[in-house]
Amino acid sequence: MSLMDNLKGKAEELKVKAEELAGKHNEKIDEMVDKTGTAVDRATKHKYSEKIEHGTTKAKSAVDHFAAKPKEDGPPASS
């Protein structure tokens, strides 16, 4: 196995781990994005409030999309 194959394998492992962690800590990440947005908004004296709000919404959406969804335990319930 070549060095490049080893690096690709490790990169995939790290991506899976990052997805799991993002899924597990999604609420905390969203909270920190909001706090950061608030701090930046204050620092810019609310001059870019709309853009900051748009950016925080996009960041939270990206985390939601990236995060691994929790695995279900068993088959789905039938109606």
Rank of each mutant, 00 (worst) to 15 (best):
M1K: 09
M1G: 12
M4T: 14
M4K: 15
D5R: 12
N6Y: 14
N6E: 13
L7S: 06
K8V: 09
G9V: 11
K10A: 15
A11Q: 13
E12Q: 07
L14Q: 11
L14G: 04
L14E: 10
L14K: 06
V16H: 08
K17T: 12
K17E: 13
E19C: 03
E19T: 05
E20T: 06
L21Y: 05
L21D: 02
L21F: 03
L21K: 06
G23F: 00
G23R: 00
G23H: 01
K24G: 02
K24T: 05
H25F: 05
H25P: 06
N26C: 15
N26P: 05
E27T: 09
K28L: 10
I29C: 04
D30Q: 13
D30C: 09
E31S: 07
M32D: 06
V33I: 07
V33K: 01
K35C: 03
T36A: 14
G37T: 04
A39P: 01
A39Y: 01
D41P: 00
T44I: 08
K45E: 15
K45Q: 15
H46E: 11
H46N: 04
K47D: 12
K47F: 09
K47G: 05
Y48E: 09
Y48P: 02
Y48L: 07
S49L: 04
S49C: 06
S49I: 04
S49D: 05
E50K: 15
E50V: 12
E50C: 11
E50P: 05
I52W: 03
I52S: 03
H54L: 15
G55R: 03
G55V: 05
T56K: 07
T56W: 02
T57Q: 13
T57V: 11
K58W: 12
K58M: 11
K60E: 00
A62D: 06
A62K: 06
V63K: 01
V63Q: 02
V63R: 02
D64S: 10
D64H: 09
F66N: 01
A67K: 00
A67C: 01
A67E: 00
A67G: 01
A68M: 03
A68I: 07
K69F: 02
K69D: 02
P70S: 05
P70H: 04
P70E: 04
P70L: 02
K71M: 08
E72Q: 15
E72M: 12
G74L: 06
G74Q: 08
G74K: 06
P75Y: 03
P75R: 06
P75I: 03
A77F: 11
A77T: 07
S78V: 14
S78G: 14
S79R: 14
